[in-house]
């Protein structure tokens, strides 16, 4: 319930009187205090109505605002929770991939991944360098940049060699089909 006597509600009364019909009604009440109770009641009920309306607006507004804040914070938290896991994986990855050239050379075997004899033969016809790069990129799933660091060359050089090797393979396999 709104109490019109409370001075802290000055702002509310200002807003109430900003509406013209409310102001007119108010002035009429003030101009003739001896008037019937009816008009007084009308003013009072209008104020109560206005107050209830404002309360409702305020309620829904805060609901919107706090829901937005709550959910934004929650998604941020979820993002943070997952990050450390990524970090750990990255650290482990760096341990695994930095163990030296000899290890990955031995591990990656074309025979293990290629079932098709024709493809395997085609791979064998590539140069040593091309095979090495394809092995890094596709058997070990490294990025071009990472392969380049391991081989001590640039990413562009790796990319170029990869393209040439794939082109060779494609030519060879397609040519084999035609004959």
């Amino acid at each position: 319930m709104f109490r019109p006597t409370n001075l802290s509600n000055q702002k509310f009364l200002d807003a109430f009187l900003a509406q013209e019909d409310n102001q007119q009604l108010c002035q009429r009440v003030i101009a003739s205090p001896d008037d019937t109770q009816k008009r007084n009641d009308e003013l009072n009920s209008r104020i109560q109505e206005f107050y209830a309306e404002l309360q409702l607006i305020k309620y829904i507004s805060s609901l919107i605002r706090f829901t937005a804040i709550e959910l934004a914070v929650r998604t941020q938290k979820i993002g943070k929770v997952f990050q450390p896991t990524d970090e750990i994986e990255r650290v482990i990855d760096s341990f695994v991939s930095d163990t030296g050239k000899s290890e990955w050379e031995n591990k990656a075997k074309w025979e293990d991944v290629i079932a098709d004899k024709r493809v395997l033969d085609a791979v064998q016809t590539l140069t040593e360098k091309e095979r090495e790069i394809l092995a890094l990129l596709y058997l070990r799933n490294l990025k071009e940049v990472e392969a380049a660091t391991l081989l001590g060359t640039s990413q562009q050089a790796v990319s170029k060699t990869k393209k040439r090797a794939l082109l060779k393979l494609r030519k060879q396999l397609l040519g084999g089909e035609n004959t």
Partner: peptide, 30 residues
């Protein structure tokens, strides 16, 4: 808010608004 989750949050806000409106007590209002 993040653009990626904005639409999700908007849905949740509207959902909560509907729930709030449905359960809002208008008894002590005129």
């Amino acid at each position: 808010t993040d653009i990626g989750v904005r639409e999700d949050i908007r849905q949740e806000i509207v959902f909560r608004m509907i729930r709030a409106v449905k359960t809002y007590s208008t008894k002590n209002c005129l």
